[in-house]
Write a protein that binds this DNA or RNA. Structure first.
Lengths: 209, 209
DNA sequence: GTCTATATAGCGATAGAC
DNA sequence: GTCTATCGCTATATAGAC
């Protein structure tokens, strides 16, 4: 595998594919470990062990622990980017997008646990992921705010709620389900439950699937 | 402690008040530190420093870090005991009790942060507080289950929801608001927002205050 | 690119003086 | 009841051999 790559006259030199695969394996292991133990308590040794690597070998790919965390989070950012880069044309569509996002997040093994664990830990201003989660929460809040402002303008919101109240309730539901999802006995369909909650906020009583 | 008890026939001897005050100061500091850094990352040194005590001096009052955590949590248990020991006669009253509990929890400075932080950390089965938070979540789930079963039986539940669905939504709302409460820009009345959410689940649309 | 060996630092906890 | 001093452990990160 390495020899094929080395013989090519142009393009990347070393065996990049192998390195990329190794990096991905490290990121996957780090997601697991950070999810189980958090950032600070999760050790580089544990991550290295799960990749069949020594600690120093791991540090060759990611020079510090904080850099590794950044890479783990930016992977998650690709999911979040879906919200950021796709401003939907209607509030209802945005709610549906949130349900879809929740569905995808639960599907990635260990991801929910990692997010829950890191969010709590990152409350500290000096935590490497503090700013990231601050921005993420703010972004989610803004999007719900926009969604319900439009829904209210379209006359689809329940009469006894303001757009701000509805946005806060919707956001609490999403955050709460994230936490409930980590309980092993909570074996219901989280995304569907979120859809049902959103429906309660509308005049019609349901959010179309 | 055993020696003191053996020697004195009745009534307290030494300056017990001073010791009790010191213990309380330690618990307050530990609540802060565990809330900011979590149990594992939060150090006994940091806690000792905030009390103006040396590390060894702190360990005189609480022999190990785990024992200190137990004492910090059992303080919170006094709040939780309110739910456990006061089975209300109606589902509506139970919901009102939950709103009141939320109101009290937010009022204790640093308590919400500590709970959020420790819950995430205690996902690991080997964490000293794992069982405690497992039981706590289970207890909350059970109480919501009972509450909405009664509400449904009384014909007060929305027609398009089952009691189980309503209980899950209510619980998610409570957990989500706990997390939202730690965001510094979320300066709304969390307990009132919870009351509003509960109202959405009822046929009447509102939960009486 | 991966290893062994090591530097450096912080942790919880103990021993014993005062 | 509180201190200083210290032990034993684990952590991140570096240096240099292969």
């Amino acid at each position: 595998m390495a020899d094929d790559q080395a013989r090519r006259p142009r393009g990347p030199r070393g065996n990049y594919a192998k390195t990329a695969a190794r990096r991905q394996a490290i990121i996957d292991a780090a997601t697991e470990v950070f999810g189980e133990s958090g950032y600070r308590a999760g050790s580089m040794r544990e991550i290295a062990d799960r990749c069949g690597l020594s600690e120093a070998g791991l540090l060759h790919h990611f020079p510090t622990k904080a850099v590794l965390l950044e890479n783990v989070l930016s992977l998650g950012g690709e999911l979040d980017a879906h919200i950021r880069d796709h401003p939907p044309e209607s509030g209802i569509l945005l709610l549906r997008g949130m349900v879809a996002l929740a569905r995808r997040n639960v599907a990635v093994p260990g991801r929910m646990e990692m997010i829950t664990t890191l969010i709590a830990e990152a409350q500290r201003p000096d935590h490497p992921a503090h700013q990231y989660f601050r921005d993420r929460l703010r972004m989610i809040a803004d999007h719900f705010g926009i969604a319900f402002a439009r829904i209210a303008a379209d006359g689809l919101l329940r009469d006894d709620l303001t757009a701000e109240q509805a946005a806060r309730i919707a956001m609490s539901a999403m955050l709460g389900l994230e936490r409930l999802a980590t309980a092993e006995w909570a074996d219901f369909d989280h995304a569907d439950e979120l859809r049902r909650t959103f429906g309660l906020l509308l005049k019609s009583g349901t959010l179309p699937d």
